[in-house]
Simulated assay, not measured.
Amino acid sequence: MSFEKINNVNVQDKHDRSCILIVNFDKKELLTIRNISSMLGMRDHIILNNINGDSVIRDILEDKLSGECNNGMKNKSIIFNNMPHNKINAFLDSLKKMKIMRPLTAMVTDTSIDWTLNNLIMNLEEERQAMKSGKTINHK
């Protein structure tokens, strides 16, 4: 597993769509997240939940959702696609100010674009646990 500062991540277009995938939030949190992101110019939102877990990220970005997953990950997650790092940092700072517990966050990469939503969230959760314990992991 490797970590990079978000400022150092290359945001070359993995997919042309500039959007945020917002996963497993309740209505109140969703409204707050959408308001924050819209104020920052991040207006394209894809709202997902655990029944979309079998959808591949590339397909989600192309509005081809699968809604038949019975064992989807239930972690709250925000996944950015083709967004500049300064907007992402401002968004995450705003979440903190609004006292929203930090969800799992990621940027779509050349690797993760071909993962299912479940696989991406599972890897994010493993990363979070590894960071807490000081261990390393290999992505699946």
Rank of each mutant, 00 (worst) to 15 (best):
W115M: 04
H85V: 02
F3Y: 10
K87A: 05
N71G: 03
L21G: 09
N70Q: 13
L117W: 12
H85L: 01
F3M: 14
H85E: 00
L21Q: 05
D59T: 06
E68F: 06
L117V: 15
L117Y: 10
L21C: 10
P84F: 05
I6N: 08
A130M: 07
E68A: 14
I121K: 04
G41D: 07
S66M: 12
S133F: 00
I57K: 01
Q129T: 13
I47F: 08
H45W: 00
M98G: 00
T136L: 13
K76V: 06
N82G: 03
L117S: 05
I79Y: 09
N24Q: 05
D93H: 01
R128T: 04
L31H: 08
T32N: 07
T136S: 14
H85K: 06
N81P: 01
N70P: 02
K99M: 05
R34C: 06
F25C: 07
I57H: 08
I78F: 05
K14R: 05
N138E: 01
L104R: 02
E125Q: 12
G134F: 02
D93N: 09
S18H: 10
M131E: 00
I121A: 09
S66L: 14
E4W: 08
T109D: 11
D44V: 05
D114M: 05
H45E: 04
H139S: 02
G41N: 11
E68R: 13
N70R: 12
S18M: 04
N70D: 08
L48D: 06
G72V: 04
L124V: 04
F91G: 00
T109M: 05
T32P: 00
I137G: 00
K74C: 08
M83Q: 14
N89E: 15
N75G: 05
S66N: 12
T32Q: 12
I100M: 07
T105N: 13
P103D: 15
V9W: 01
K99P: 05
W115V: 01
E4Y: 13
A90E: 14
F3Q: 11
N7Y: 15
V108A: 14
S38I: 01
T105H: 09
K87L: 03
E29K: 08
D59W: 03
I33G: 01
I79M: 13
T116E: 14
S55P: 04
S37L: 11
K5L: 07
S37N: 04
Q12L: 14
L61D: 09
I57S: 11
K140F: 05
N119M: 04
V23F: 11
E125M: 06
I47A: 10
K135I: 04
F91V: 01
L40M: 05
M42Y: 07
R128S: 11
